[in-house]
Design a protein around this nucleic acid. Sequence first.
DNA 1: TGTTGTGAAGGCGTTCACAGCC
DNA 2: GGCTGTGAACGCCTTCACAACA
Lengths: 209, 209
Amino acid sequence: VNAAEELRISDPTVRRLSGYYRILGELRAGGEETVSSYDLAHRSGATPAQVRKDLSLFGHFGKRGTGYAVAQLETEIRAILGLNRHWRVGVVGAGNLAHALIAYREFAREGFEIVAVFDNDPAKVGQDWNGLRVRSIDELVDAVREERIDIGIITAPAEAATDVAQRLIRAGVRGILNFAPGKLFVPKHVSLRNVNLAIELESLSYALK
Amino acid sequence: VNAAEELRISDPTVRRLSGYYRILGELRAGGEETVSSYDLAHRSGATPAQVRKDLSLFGHFGKRGTGYAVAQLETEIRAILGLNRHWRVGVVGAGNLAHALIAYREFAREGFEIVAVFDNDPAKVGQDWNGLRVRSIDELVDAVREERIDIGIITAPAEAATDVAQRLIRAGVRGILNFAPGKLFVPKHVSLRNVNLAIELESLSYALK
DNA sequence: TGTTGTGAAGGCGTTCACAGCC
DNA sequence: GGCTGTGAACGCCTTCACAACA
């Protein structure tokens, strides 16, 4: 019974699932075979009821009196999150953040492969980045199509972000992860996630004041 | 009239304020003197009612029929967010992400100064990073106290994050921005913000599936 | 007239509490 | 006895709608 296609799942739920998924990987590596909603809750920062409700939206994965089978639940969530396929990713902006993303082990492990890097600085174009040649922004639209890139990550500065997003969308990417501050307008068939480091630090500042 | 000390302000509200603040800076640079809740809403992705409600939690900043005075509102929000003071920041984990943070112009402009970098890799300790000497993790507690560091940023790998957080807390930081996956347990006098890149990409993956 | 400030209504996610099942 | 699955209650944030006012 999979209700995913019918039911609307909230963003917080999806983000928690991602958390459960990581924990399940650790539990499996540690030899655990079952886990209760209480344990998952404690490790993830959620509540037991929350864990059960989140999982029940997608099926009946648990056994009363026992809990959830670690390996099976991990497989279920992998499928729910769409991690049992390969995602081809392009990064725009060949700076330090791009370097950090390319080096990030977690990504490759979950099926996100960075297959292209772009920059508008002629001095950077042509450089070798972990085996990838940095390409010009002018090649972006064609390259995204050729490389069949699904997801674009914008690490370019704010001034360039709008233009970069338009190119990515024109080239047909369906998802964008944006690190530049400022609002991007995207058509509704494109999914957008924003990570704004200034907001994180400023909300900390507010809490500390 | 400042209700900040009495009223409980929600996290979403604070994050939106941070967005308004950035936009106000742009408007001022563009020579705008007033702005309406409609305009701020459109530029930030909120709704006009939301903008007015957020601002009304802290005072009566607007003029009916006219809108908000850009420069004045910017000053108000700066004070609300605690950005009219200097925050001393330490980064733990001298990798690519740390490089990106140190190079990030936005931070310095808003009063966040990175004054120390730490790593546990002997090969990195002693290296020069934009004028900062990379210090050993073993120096962390003493250095945080000496340098009067308020905020710690954890860019270390997941395995090290718990230990790093404990050291930061023992040394007396009041805020932590954590980039490592996994839950950190902090006492309630310490504020914690998490940025988890895997969750961002996986929630995109879910939306695209 | 144009726009703010705000009580009231609405919507949505979380928590409760317990029936159901192993 | 232990733990899941879930309808109902709750609480919180958002949106509405309009009075107040420049």
